[in-house]
Amino acid sequence: MTVTARTTNKMKAVRQKNTGAEVATRQLLHGLGLRFRLHRKDLPGSPDIVLPRHETIIFVHGCYWHRHPGCKYATTPKTNQDFWLPKFERNVERDARKEAALRALGWRVLIVWECETRDLAKLESRLREEFELPPAPDTAIDAPESSGR
């Protein structure tokens, strides 16, 4: 078996739907009161999350596979670069085509990167801003002041 064949077999095990990052993003959106549809095949690229009411599409991209610019998780393998570099380039080009096609249909397209799901409070803040929702209520409970006795 060649290196490329082994690599291709390993890639079959990579999830395309319902990844941890995607599920975390969906739970966050649902908690914010936003309702959505999943993986609509009638739209270009079968988007991860579709919010029809807001005319918004959300793609939850893995930093490694979709080449998140400047991200420490978007590493490039040192071996077999003749295979990997064109593959990554095709992924990025395909993402751009899907995004352009959706925008041409009137959709707003948001990208949530896998690394963003590591800090859910920050991601929640970003989503609240994107959907013009009020800021999260302060969860700190003020302790009653003591009378000094």
Rank of each mutant, 00 (worst) to 15 (best):
E93G: 06
D82L: 13
Q81D: 03
E99K: 10
W113Q: 05
F88A: 00
P77D: 14
K78P: 03
K78L: 03
L110H: 10
F88M: 00
L110V: 08
R97L: 14
A74G: 09
W84Q: 07
V109G: 02
A100R: 07
N91H: 09
A74V: 05
I111V: 11
E89H: 03
C115A: 12
R94T: 08
A101N: 05
T117M: 15
K87Q: 09
E99W: 02
I111H: 08
R90L: 03
V112P: 13
G106P: 08
N91Y: 08
P77L: 04
L110G: 07
E93W: 12
A104F: 09
E116P: 13
D95Q: 07
K98A: 10
V92S: 02
D82A: 15
L102K: 05
L102Q: 06
E99I: 13
I111G: 03
R90Y: 00
T75C: 13
W84T: 02
T75I: 11
P86T: 02
W113T: 09
L110A: 09
L110I: 10
R103S: 13
R108P: 03
D95V: 02
Y73Q: 12
G106Q: 06
E114C: 04
R118I: 15
Y73C: 12
L105P: 11
E89G: 02
R97M: 15
T117R: 10
R118D: 15
R118L: 15
Y73D: 14
E93K: 14
W107T: 03
K98D: 11
N80H: 14
R118E: 15
R90P: 00
R108Y: 04
V92Q: 06
T75F: 09
A100N: 11
R97Y: 11
N91P: 01
W113P: 07
T117A: 15
R97G: 09
W113R: 06
V109F: 09
R94C: 13
P86Q: 00
R103H: 12
E114F: 08
F83T: 00
P86M: 01
I111R: 08
A74R: 02
W107H: 01
P77S: 09
A100F: 05
L102A: 07
A74E: 12
R103T: 14
K98I: 15
T117S: 14
F83D: 08
G106W: 11
G106S: 10
F88G: 00
A101F: 02
A100G: 01
Q81W: 02
E99L: 11
F88N: 00
K78W: 03
E116K: 14
F83N: 05
K78R: 09
K87P: 01
T79N: 09
A104D: 12
R90K: 11
W84E: 03
L105Y: 06
D95E: 09
A100I: 08
R108D: 06
K87N: 08
A96R: 14
V109T: 03
L85F: 00
R90W: 06
K78E: 04
E116L: 15
T117C: 15
R103N: 13
R118G: 15
